[in-house]
């Protein structure tokens, strides 16, 4: 057993002090210490993107970040984007446009798509495919995922124009 260290994380706007070994991966701390099971452990080899969370304004694969590296960071998980009663635009859009089948990749997809739309509010289909290349889905063939993100972007832009 390695010696545990104190790690400060702000997750979905809430400050946490966690005691964990330096070798603990961010995905394990989020799921096991904080009970946030939205980010999934898929391949665990930084290929599939199911564990994607937002860290200091960047999409990262939390299976390939030590919690110690994240000490002091701001993290947003899928739980921070919407709730069952108040779905995020992207969550609603994925439901409406059939952007998921089994749903395993969906938290990572939506967390990544949210960052993509913040950097590029009106992406083309090609830009979405390039920007989502770090997230794999084994069910949908991506067509409806891309459609969901395009629709969410349009809705967010229309809402912004109305305000």
């Amino acid at each position: 057993m390695g010696k545990k260290m104190q790690i400060s994380l702000t997750v979905n706007g809430e400050a946490h002090e966690i005691l964990a070994e330096p070798r603990a991966l961010l995905i394990h701390v989020l799921r096991e210490n904080l009970g946030l099971t939205g980010p999934h452990i898929g391949c665990e080899t930084s290929h599939c993107g199911a564990c994607t969370v937002d860290m200091n304004g960047k999409s990262v694969k939390s299976c390939t970040v030590f919690a110690a590296q994240a000490d002091g960071a701001q993290i947003t998980t899928i739980e921070g984007l919407g709730s069952p009663d108040a779905l995020h635009v992207l969550q609603r859009s994925f439901r409406e446009h059939h952007g998921l089948q089994c749903g395993f990749c969906t938290p990572g997809m939506i967390t990544r798509a949210n960052r993509l739309l913040q950097e590029n509010p009106s992406p083309t289909e090609e830009e979405i495919r390039f920007g989502m290349a770090g997230n794999l889905c084994r069910c949908t063939g991506y067509q409806n995922i891309v459609k969901s993100i395009l629709a969410a972007a349009a809705e967010m832009n229309a809402k912004e124009a109305a305000e």
Partner: peptide, 11 residues
């Protein structure tokens, strides 16, 4: 898929 234990430094 957990590495062996190490000490962490952030100079």
């Amino acid at each position: 898929m957990i590495p062996s234990a190490f000490a962490y430094h952030r100079p």
